[in-house]
Protein backbone atom coordinates (compact mmCIF):
# COMPACT_ATOMS: atom_id res chain seq x y z
CA UNK A 1 0.00 0.00 0.00
CA UNK A 2 2.74 2.39 1.03
CA UNK A 3 4.85 1.32 -1.90
CA UNK A 4 1.97 1.95 -4.30
CA UNK A 5 1.61 5.47 -2.92
CA UNK A 6 5.33 6.05 -3.41
CA UNK A 7 5.20 4.88 -7.01
CA UNK A 8 2.15 7.07 -7.62
CA UNK A 9 3.98 10.13 -6.32
CA UNK A 10 7.10 9.50 -8.40
CA UNK A 11 4.98 8.88 -11.50
CA UNK A 12 3.10 12.11 -10.93
CA UNK A 13 6.33 14.13 -10.74
CA UNK A 14 7.77 12.38 -13.78
CA UNK A 15 4.60 13.23 -15.71
CA UNK A 16 4.96 16.88 -14.69
CA UNK A 17 8.57 16.83 -15.89
CA UNK A 18 8.13 14.92 -19.14
CA UNK A 19 4.63 15.66 -20.45
CA UNK A 20 5.58 19.09 -21.89
CA UNK A 21 8.72 17.72 -23.55
CA UNK A 22 7.00 14.62 -24.94
CA UNK A 23 3.88 16.42 -26.16
CA UNK A 24 6.10 18.93 -27.93
CA UNK A 25 8.06 16.03 -29.43
CA UNK A 26 4.86 14.44 -30.76
CA UNK A 27 3.67 17.70 -32.30
CA UNK A 28 7.09 18.37 -33.82
CA UNK A 29 6.32 15.54 -36.28
CA UNK A 30 3.05 17.12 -37.40
CA UNK A 31 2.10 20.14 -39.44
CA UNK A 32 0.23 21.75 -36.52
CA UNK A 33 1.13 25.38 -35.87
CA UNK A 34 0.34 25.13 -32.15
CA UNK A 35 0.24 22.33 -29.61
CA UNK A 36 -3.28 20.91 -29.53
CA UNK A 37 -4.05 22.64 -32.82
CA UNK A 38 -5.40 21.05 -35.96
CA UNK A 39 -3.24 18.23 -37.30
CA UNK A 40 -3.70 17.19 -40.90
CA UNK A 41 -0.68 15.00 -41.37
CA UNK A 42 2.61 13.64 -40.16
CA UNK A 43 5.66 15.34 -41.58
CA UNK A 44 9.38 15.87 -41.02
CA UNK A 45 9.17 19.47 -42.28
CA UNK A 46 10.19 20.91 -38.91
CA UNK A 47 13.34 18.82 -38.89
CA UNK A 48 14.15 19.66 -42.49
CA UNK A 49 13.59 23.35 -41.76
CA UNK A 50 16.05 23.10 -38.87
CA UNK A 51 18.85 22.16 -41.25
CA UNK A 52 17.72 24.10 -44.30
CA UNK A 53 17.16 27.47 -42.64
CA UNK A 54 20.55 29.14 -42.68
CA UNK A 55 19.80 31.30 -39.65
CA UNK A 56 18.81 28.30 -37.55
CA UNK A 57 21.74 26.23 -38.73
CA UNK A 58 24.19 29.04 -38.02
CA UNK A 59 22.70 29.60 -34.57
CA UNK A 60 22.97 25.92 -33.62
CA UNK A 61 26.51 25.66 -34.97
CA UNK A 62 27.52 28.89 -33.18
CA UNK A 63 26.12 27.68 -29.85
CA UNK A 64 27.96 24.36 -30.03
CA UNK A 65 31.23 25.93 -31.25
CA UNK A 66 31.12 28.56 -28.50
CA UNK A 67 30.47 25.88 -25.85
CA UNK A 68 33.27 23.61 -27.07
CA UNK A 69 35.90 26.32 -27.50
CA UNK A 70 35.14 28.06 -24.19
CA UNK A 71 34.96 24.76 -22.30
CA UNK A 72 38.32 23.70 -23.76
CA UNK A 73 39.92 26.98 -22.66
CA UNK A 74 38.28 26.70 -19.23
CA UNK A 75 39.43 23.13 -18.82
CA UNK A 76 43.09 23.92 -19.60
CA UNK A 77 43.09 27.04 -17.45
CA UNK A 78 41.31 25.49 -14.49
CA UNK A 79 43.21 22.19 -14.59
CA UNK A 80 46.57 23.96 -14.43
CA UNK A 81 45.12 26.34 -11.86
CA UNK A 82 43.89 23.51 -9.66
CA UNK A 83 47.20 21.63 -9.83
CA UNK A 84 49.18 24.79 -9.11
CA UNK A 85 46.91 25.91 -6.29
CA UNK A 86 46.94 22.45 -4.70
CA UNK A 87 50.72 22.62 -4.27
CA UNK A 88 50.84 26.31 -3.35
CA UNK A 89 51.14 27.74 0.13
CA UNK A 90 48.06 27.82 2.28
CA UNK A 91 47.38 31.54 1.80
CA UNK A 92 47.61 31.40 -1.99
CA UNK A 93 45.43 28.29 -2.07
CA UNK A 94 42.78 29.87 0.15
CA UNK A 95 42.73 33.04 -1.95
CA UNK A 96 42.37 31.15 -5.24
CA UNK A 97 39.68 28.89 -3.77
CA UNK A 98 37.77 31.94 -2.51
CA UNK A 99 37.99 33.81 -5.83
CA UNK A 100 37.00 30.62 -7.63
CA UNK A 101 33.88 30.42 -5.46
CA UNK A 102 32.63 33.89 -6.49
CA UNK A 103 31.23 33.02 -9.96
CA UNK A 104 29.84 29.77 -8.53
CA UNK A 105 27.60 31.47 -5.97
CA UNK A 106 27.06 34.67 -7.94
CA UNK A 107 23.96 35.12 -10.10
CA UNK A 108 24.75 34.67 -13.81
CA UNK A 109 23.14 37.98 -14.56
CA UNK A 110 25.51 39.84 -12.21
CA UNK A 111 28.52 38.00 -13.64
CA UNK A 112 27.42 38.84 -17.18
CA UNK A 113 26.62 42.47 -16.40
CA UNK A 114 29.91 43.05 -14.56
CA UNK A 115 32.01 41.45 -17.32
CA UNK A 116 30.09 43.57 -19.84
CA UNK A 117 30.86 46.80 -17.95
CA UNK A 118 34.56 46.01 -17.52
CA UNK A 119 35.28 44.78 -21.05
CA UNK A 120 32.79 46.66 -23.18
CA UNK A 121 32.05 49.89 -21.33
CA UNK A 122 35.41 50.61 -19.70
CA UNK A 123 37.96 48.85 -21.90
CA UNK A 124 35.93 49.52 -25.05
CA UNK A 125 36.55 46.05 -26.50
CA UNK A 126 34.13 45.62 -29.38
CA UNK A 127 31.45 42.96 -28.86
CA UNK A 128 32.09 41.84 -32.44
CA UNK A 129 35.53 40.49 -31.50
CA UNK A 130 33.79 37.74 -29.47
CA UNK A 131 36.33 38.48 -26.71
CA UNK A 132 33.74 39.62 -24.13
CA UNK A 133 31.47 36.68 -24.98
CA UNK A 134 34.33 34.17 -24.76
CA UNK A 135 35.63 35.70 -21.53
CA UNK A 136 32.13 35.62 -20.05
CA UNK A 137 31.66 31.96 -20.84
CA UNK A 138 35.09 31.06 -19.46
CA UNK A 139 34.26 32.95 -16.23
CA UNK A 140 31.02 30.98 -16.04
CA UNK A 141 32.54 27.55 -16.66
CA UNK A 142 36.17 27.49 -15.42
CA UNK A 143 35.30 27.57 -11.68
CA UNK A 144 33.17 24.44 -12.06
CA UNK A 145 35.99 22.62 -13.84
CA UNK A 146 38.31 23.68 -11.00
CA UNK A 147 35.85 22.30 -8.44
CA UNK A 148 35.52 18.95 -10.20
CA UNK A 149 39.31 18.50 -10.33
CA UNK A 150 40.06 19.33 -6.67
CA UNK A 151 38.72 16.04 -5.20
CA UNK A 152 40.80 14.03 -7.71
CA UNK A 153 43.93 15.92 -6.62
CA UNK A 154 43.21 15.06 -3.01
CA UNK A 155 42.85 11.36 -3.90
CA UNK A 156 46.06 11.34 -5.94
CA UNK A 157 49.08 9.50 -4.65
CA UNK A 158 51.65 12.26 -4.30
CA UNK A 159 54.66 9.95 -4.21
CA UNK A 160 54.10 8.92 -7.84
CA UNK A 161 55.11 12.39 -9.01
CA UNK A 162 58.21 12.34 -6.84
CA UNK A 163 59.01 8.85 -8.08
CA UNK A 164 58.75 9.98 -11.71
CA UNK A 165 61.18 12.82 -10.98
CA UNK A 166 63.58 10.47 -9.18
CA UNK A 167 63.48 8.17 -12.18
CA UNK A 168 64.68 11.02 -14.37
CA UNK A 169 61.48 12.55 -15.77
CA UNK A 170 61.47 16.30 -16.26
CA UNK A 171 58.71 18.16 -14.37
CA UNK A 172 56.82 18.63 -17.65
CA UNK A 173 56.99 14.91 -18.42
CA UNK A 174 55.95 14.06 -14.88
CA UNK A 175 53.04 16.45 -15.20
CA UNK A 176 51.74 15.06 -18.48
CA UNK A 177 52.53 11.39 -17.94
CA UNK A 178 51.86 11.00 -14.23
CA UNK A 179 49.77 13.79 -12.74
CA UNK A 180 47.30 14.59 -15.53
CA UNK A 181 46.42 10.95 -16.38
CA UNK A 182 45.32 10.50 -12.76
CA UNK A 183 43.10 13.56 -13.01
CA UNK A 184 41.39 12.50 -16.26
CA UNK A 185 38.03 11.53 -14.68
CA UNK A 186 37.83 14.92 -12.96
CA UNK A 187 38.94 16.78 -16.08
CA UNK A 188 36.40 14.91 -18.24
CA UNK A 189 33.47 15.52 -15.92
CA UNK A 190 34.56 19.15 -15.52
CA UNK A 191 34.63 19.59 -19.28
CA UNK A 192 31.17 18.03 -19.67
CA UNK A 193 29.81 20.27 -16.93
CA UNK A 194 31.37 23.29 -18.66
CA UNK A 195 29.75 22.37 -21.97
CA UNK A 196 26.30 21.99 -20.42
CA UNK A 197 26.62 25.26 -18.49
CA UNK A 198 27.70 27.13 -21.60
CA UNK A 199 24.91 25.61 -23.72
CA UNK A 200 22.32 26.55 -21.10
CA UNK A 201 23.50 30.11 -20.53
CA UNK A 202 21.29 33.04 -21.44
CA UNK A 203 22.31 36.01 -19.30
CA UNK A 204 26.06 36.18 -19.83
CA UNK A 205 25.51 35.66 -23.55
CA UNK A 206 22.95 38.47 -23.88
CA UNK A 207 25.16 41.02 -22.17
CA UNK A 208 28.35 40.23 -24.07
CA UNK A 209 27.40 38.82 -27.49
CA UNK A 210 27.81 40.57 -30.86
CA UNK A 211 24.39 41.79 -32.01
CA UNK A 212 24.41 39.53 -35.07
CA UNK A 213 25.32 36.37 -33.15
CA UNK A 214 22.76 34.21 -31.37
CA UNK A 215 22.94 31.11 -29.22
CA UNK A 216 20.03 28.71 -28.79
CA UNK A 217 18.95 30.52 -25.60
CA UNK A 218 18.95 34.05 -26.98
CA UNK A 219 17.43 32.87 -30.27
CA UNK A 220 14.56 31.03 -28.57
CA UNK A 221 13.79 33.97 -26.30
CA UNK A 222 13.69 36.34 -29.28
CA UNK A 223 11.64 33.90 -31.32
CA UNK A 224 8.95 33.60 -28.62
CA UNK A 225 8.54 37.38 -28.74
CA UNK A 226 7.88 37.31 -32.48
CA UNK A 227 5.24 35.25 -34.22
CA UNK A 228 7.07 33.42 -37.01
CA UNK A 229 5.26 30.09 -37.02
CA UNK A 230 7.85 28.36 -39.19
CA UNK A 231 10.69 29.12 -36.81
CA UNK A 232 8.51 28.37 -33.80
CA UNK A 233 7.67 24.85 -34.90
CA UNK A 234 11.25 24.22 -36.05
CA UNK A 235 12.27 24.98 -32.46
CA UNK A 236 10.00 22.13 -31.31
CA UNK A 237 12.11 19.87 -33.49
CA UNK A 238 15.26 21.35 -31.95
CA UNK A 239 13.89 20.73 -28.45
CA UNK A 240 13.17 17.10 -29.36
CA UNK A 241 16.63 16.61 -30.84
CA UNK A 242 18.33 18.14 -27.79
CA UNK A 243 16.25 15.87 -25.55
CA UNK A 244 17.30 12.78 -27.52
CA UNK A 245 20.97 13.82 -27.54
CA UNK A 246 20.91 14.40 -23.77
CA UNK A 247 19.38 10.95 -23.21
CA UNK A 248 21.99 9.36 -25.51
CA UNK A 249 24.88 11.13 -23.77
CA UNK A 250 23.60 10.23 -20.28
CA UNK A 251 23.15 6.57 -21.24
CA UNK A 252 26.54 6.52 -22.97
CA UNK A 253 28.36 8.03 -19.99
CA UNK A 254 26.74 5.58 -17.59
CA UNK A 255 27.58 2.59 -19.75
CA UNK A 256 31.17 3.83 -19.91
CA UNK A 257 31.29 4.35 -16.14
CA UNK A 258 29.86 0.88 -15.54
CA UNK A 259 32.47 -0.68 -17.83
CA UNK A 260 35.28 1.20 -16.11
CA UNK A 261 33.89 0.09 -12.74
CA UNK A 262 33.91 -3.56 -13.86
CA UNK A 263 37.52 -3.41 -15.05
CA UNK A 264 38.64 -2.28 -11.64
Amino acid sequence: MKKAAHICWLTLILLFIYIPILVLAVFSFTDASMVGGAVSGITFDNYIELFRNEELRGMIFGTVALALVCSAISTVLATLGAIGAYYSKRTAKTLINAANQIPVVNADIVTGFSVCILLIVIMRISKDTFIPLGAGHVVLTAPFVYLSILPKLKQMDNSLYEAALDLGATPVQALFKVVIPQLIPGIASGFMLAVTLSLDDYFITTYTKPSTFDTISTYVVNATRGSQTEVKTALWALSTLVFLIVIAVVIGMNVLAAKRGKKK
Binding site: G84, A99, N100, V110, L175
Partner: peptide
Protein backbone atom coordinates in the same frame (compact mmCIF):
# COMPACT_ATOMS: atom_id res chain seq x y z
CA UNK B 1 54.38 23.03 -10.08
CA UNK B 2 53.13 26.01 -8.14
CA UNK B 3 53.67 28.28 -11.11
CA UNK B 4 50.95 26.44 -13.00
CA UNK B 5 48.29 28.36 -11.11
CA UNK B 6 49.57 31.76 -12.22
CA UNK B 7 47.49 31.98 -15.44
CA UNK B 8 44.35 31.00 -13.58
CA UNK B 9 45.08 33.39 -10.71
CA UNK B 10 45.63 36.26 -13.17
CA UNK B 11 42.44 35.27 -14.94
CA UNK B 12 40.47 35.31 -11.67
CA UNK B 13 41.83 38.71 -10.69
CA UNK B 14 41.10 40.23 -14.07
CA UNK B 15 37.75 38.65 -14.97
CA UNK B 16 36.21 37.87 -11.59
CA UNK B 17 37.52 40.32 -9.00
CA UNK B 18 38.03 43.38 -11.21
CA UNK B 19 34.43 43.30 -12.58
CA UNK B 20 33.11 43.29 -9.01
CA UNK B 21 35.13 46.39 -8.11
CA UNK B 22 33.90 48.02 -11.30
CA UNK B 23 30.30 47.31 -10.24
Amino acid sequence: RKQLCIPYAVFLVFFVLAPLFVI
